[in-house]
Design a protein around this nucleic acid. Structure first.
Lengths: 242, 242
DNA sequence: CTCTGTAAGATTGTATACATTTATTATGTC
DNA sequence: GACATAATAAATGTATACAATCTTACAGAG
């Protein structure tokens, strides 16, 4: 009986396309498709102020600015629509969502709920496999470096990376997906914040504290810390925003 | 100074494209774009068993089956990827996600968190504007009609409509968006369930009870009822699924 | 026989071009 | 002059065609 030769896909992708557990810190390059990159560019554009909430997005113009065709750009808009970043009606065009204070409250509320789930799962994962904490430490180092130079975009990215890593560690694919969408809202909200040097240090400190709580497995301290961490934006309601 | 005549877009779309509050039960036709319809068709295909979880999706074949070009189909796949229904890697294709028991637990867990937020907001909305309850009643009537004939797909749709309406009533756009994604997972999970006539009646009863709790504004009874309602799927773990 | 390199086939990624719908402007009528 | 109607222009929706990439199969060297 001749043993059938394994095909390339059977070797590289055992079952799902993205192997959940790699040989420790080996993560097969994520999706750099043009559509996804365009979506990220649009979100960063809003966060940096180049695009304004509520603004109408013309496909031809955006495609020209991003130096691509309308096809991948439209795919990007579909992604962003599914995530709630833009709104569209058929034959009527697409425009950026608005981010008023009520919306910011909603974002924080949803975020809190999702992260509590993720944190619980992650705490269990870190207990079983403490080596995963190294990924958090790496992100924290990058965050500190960015904070030292007051590079707010980089700080925000590291902030979101931190929480994304926790979602990843939790192994909860659903929460991770929902949080990917929510993270884009959070990034935009971060962009609207006016923050000081003291804020930068506080942010790093908060994340270090979260990391330590996760490492120690103190479940009871987690919820309280999370509340304070995430509702920070809400407490500032009405001030310190552009 | 000549008064400038208002443009049509300024009259029809004051600020956001989708007006949050209409003249009571007047909802400007939602997005029937071809891409969105294709996405819905694919989800229904999984729910009905025509497509199997984990299956690879060939663009040309799917486009032929759905009688459309690859362009809107790809847009549909991007939407579904953002919602976690399919997974893809560039130049490697797209495949349906798998829905094992761990995944079902994740779905229920996330759903519970989101719906608790929505229910709280909706309860407040119903208190201010009891007329909104009529929309729930309408859905419940449809659900009962479907339950009488044991039309499970229709029951599931009414089930999701019920909860979508609650998200809508809550006015929380973020939760609504996240739940739209999650609802597709739930629909697929419903499709995997094997249910009896007793189940049909129980489902209708549970929703009627939820509706009454919302109408009465009994916040304390809500969480408990929700836990029982949503974790129903989880309690059946390991049995009654295909 | 196993491994490596190469070539053919298949599939996805992108760009261009056309059809449909909408929004604006212009025109005519009351 | 105000309103309704028709024509023009703009933008989106869709289809077709081409390019880049990957998978697979095959041949040859060790």
């Amino acid at each position: 009986m001749p043993r059938r030769r394994l095909t390339a896909s059977e070797i590289l992708t055992p079952e799902p396309i993205s192997p959940m557990t790699a040989a420790e810190g080996l993560t097969l390059a994520p999706n750099p498709g043009l559509a996804e990159r365009a979506a990220e560019a649009i979100v960063l554009g809003v966060a940096s102020g180049a695009l304004q909430p509520g603004q109408r997005l013309l496909e031809v113009e955006l495609a020209r600015l991003l130096q691509m065709s309308r096809v991948p750009l439209r795919e990007a808009l579909k992604i962003l629509e599914a995530q709630g970043i833009v709104e569209s009606a058929p034959h009527r065009g697409t425009r950026l969502a608005t981010f008023d204070e009520a919306r910011i409250d909603e974002i924080c509320e949803a975020r809190l709920a999702l992260e509590k789930i993720a944190m619980r799962g992650a705490m269990e994962a870190y207990r079983r496999e403490p080596a995963l904490l190294l990924r958090l430490d790496k992100i924290l180092t990058a965050m500190e470096r960015a904070a030292a130079h007051m590079e707010w975009i980089e700080i925000s990215k590291a902030d979101l990376d931190f929480h994304r890593e926790i979602c990843r560690a939790s192994g909860n694919a659903i929460v991770q997906k929902l949080w990917d969408a929510l993270a884009r809202h959070v990034l935009i909200v971060f962009g609207k914040e006016i923050r000081s040097e003291r804020d930068a240090k506080a942010i790093v400190g908060q994340h270090r504290r979260l990391r330590d709580i996760l490492a120690a497995g103190k479940a009871e301290a987690l919820d309280e810390e999370l509340d304070q961490h995430i509702l920070r934006l809400q407490r500032r309601k009405g001030r310190n925003v552009r």
